[in-house]
Amino acid sequence: MAMAIGQAIWAAAMSMLALVGAASAQDWSMSQFDDGSYFSATLAPIDGPGPALVCGERSPRGLSPAATGNLEPDITPVGAFRLYLSDRAIGAPAPQRMIRDDVLIVAGGSGYRLRGLRWNAAFSTWQIDLPATDPSFAAIAAAQEFELRYDGGVRRLSSAGFAAGVGGLSTYCQTMFASIGKPWPATQALPPARQTMRQLAEAGIRQSCGGAAHWTPEAILPAQIDGDGAEDIVVDWHGVTCTTGVPRPNCGAANCLVEVYISALYPRVGAPESTLALGVRLQPLTNGNDALAFAGSLGSCTRTVGQTRCETLSYWNGAALVPLR
């Protein structure tokens, strides 16, 4: 039996997406399809592995699928894109694992977990339906490149052409859905990408200083504290000097402020966790996250011969930083 038209088109697209190449050579391109029975549009990289965004429904021309042979079309929800990921990009399913939660899109320092990726055996690909306003799309559009992180590794992709491509995809999909009496919600503009923790930390330093500041490389530590794939930031004010006003506004005789910008708290809380300490370092944990080792004086811990200070370990418990006992 000949392969259905929709499946043949998708197989060709997946062959293109499965090519392994450098991120710098990658662009994004949108294609449209309407055989009279179903329409679809696809935004995908021209070269290299990566996700493909698709929308589709019955064609306004109203032809029978039996007449066109299109028996496996893409039919997507109103106001959503279907994201496809080739098995060659992130691996085929393990036995009895038809749904997975390990894949992250990381762009601009923020991570977006694809919870509930489902295996499509007909197309040999993973898929999930996402709102057209999903913040991951805005983050990809605003970045020069982004990453796909999964249990088997990391794939880096270029964002060149994505912003224009996703805009064109959204316009086409809205127009076609409206033509068959299924208009998308009125607010379909992509939201702005949220600030990264590094941007927030640097802005927080300048705000505390009342102007410009400079800092040592050790003063701003990139970390993975909450395990969401987005970069968290630890600011140790021992290494920060304000250019104007008080040079070290957040330091006393020995202790300085340590601020922890955790992506899981933004924008719900919107403020860093903070404490006073003699210093801070990152301590890797067995789960792949980082704990924070805050240095304190001997008065805060059990005295040991030859010891001049001690450390208190704190880790993220899913809601807050708590001492590691």
Rank of each mutant, 00 (worst) to 15 (best):
L117K: 12
G165W: 14
A186T: 08
F146K: 02
R118A: 15
G91N: 01
V106W: 04
C173N: 05
I90S: 01
A186N: 01
S159I: 01
W126G: 03
A107W: 02
L190I: 04
P77R: 07
L117S: 09
L85V: 01
Y84H: 11
P93I: 04
T187N: 11
Y112I: 00
Q96Y: 14
R156M: 09
A92M: 11
A94M: 11
G116V: 12
A138D: 03
F81I: 01
R155K: 10
S170V: 04
D129N: 12
Y84S: 04
G48I: 00
R100H: 09
A122N: 13
R149D: 03
T171K: 10
D151G: 06
S159C: 04
R113A: 07
Q188I: 07
G165I: 12
R156D: 04
R61Q: 13
I128A: 05
L71G: 11
G108L: 00
A94C: 05
S158R: 02
F81Q: 01
C173L: 10
I46M: 13
I180V: 13
G50H: 02
S136H: 00
I140H: 02
I99N: 10
A52V: 03
P73Q: 10
A52D: 00
R97I: 13
V54S: 07
Q127M: 13
M176V: 04
G168R: 08
R118I: 12
S179P: 06
F137L: 13
W126N: 01
Q96F: 15
V106G: 00
G111T: 01
A141W: 03
I105G: 00
V106D: 04
F137M: 11
P65K: 06
S124G: 07
T125D: 12
A89V: 09
Y84G: 06
I140V: 09
D74G: 05
E147D: 14
R61M: 15
D129V: 03
L169P: 01
S136R: 04
Y84R: 10
R97H: 14
L53H: 05
W126T: 02
L104M: 09
Q127K: 07
A163L: 10
T187F: 05
A189W: 01
F162I: 03
I105V: 11
R88P: 00
R97E: 15
G79P: 05
G56V: 09
V106F: 07
C173S: 13
